[in-house]
Amino acid sequence: MITLANVRKIFNQARPNEYTAVDGVSLQLEEHDVTVFKGPSGSGKTTLLSLVGCMARPTSGRIHLLGREITSLPERFLTEIRRKTFGFIFQQFHLIKGISVLDNVMLPAYPCGERLSVLKERALHLLDLFNVSQKAHTRVEWLSGGEAQRVAIARALINGPSIIIADEPTAHLDSMHSHELVEILRGLKNDRKTILIASHDPIIYDSDIVDKVVHLRDGKVDEGDTGPRTRGHLQLLKGR
């Protein structure tokens, strides 16, 4: 379970260009659920995901991950959590050009010191799972958008994370590939992964795999436009 308690994130604090990206968000996200953060551009979706994913620290508030408070953790512990607990799928894919698909997938696992043969086998298995194994030795710049997305997902799963964070995963995909992505996410959900997605694509948030939609606006949770299950959780938190 992931719990956010009054989380705020302010950029450029006390400067003329101060900007509050997340403003007092309190939420409770269940394990093994698919949660979509929906909202217009600038509503704080990406910032909120980066806070949950330990890629940034909040200005105030606390985040608990599986009962453990993570916002106060020293950097070396955050690195470990990022590496073992989260798998990240980025809007721009962020695949590293100049190296092969296989190397890209294996890259996040190198610091773990696993045997290369074991790692390679697992990476090839993941590429096979997402039907891109035939491109394993191809450079990533030669991939199509859909293939790049599937490679990015394979890379996110290489360390066996329990939580998948996807930021606008369909932003660069056509409808066919977006539906394909939903099917991949369904498979991950069936594997009991917790999935957090920031998206304003109806293909994603209207999908039947989604358990909860959290609507964000101006850095706050918009309760009026939030699914019934989420509203219940908000009331539960407020009641405490």
Partner: peptide
């Protein structure tokens, strides 16, 4: 989780 505490932590 106050702002002051998080500033001190950093």
């Amino acid at each position: 989780g106050s702002e002051q505490q998080l500033v001190l932590e950093r």
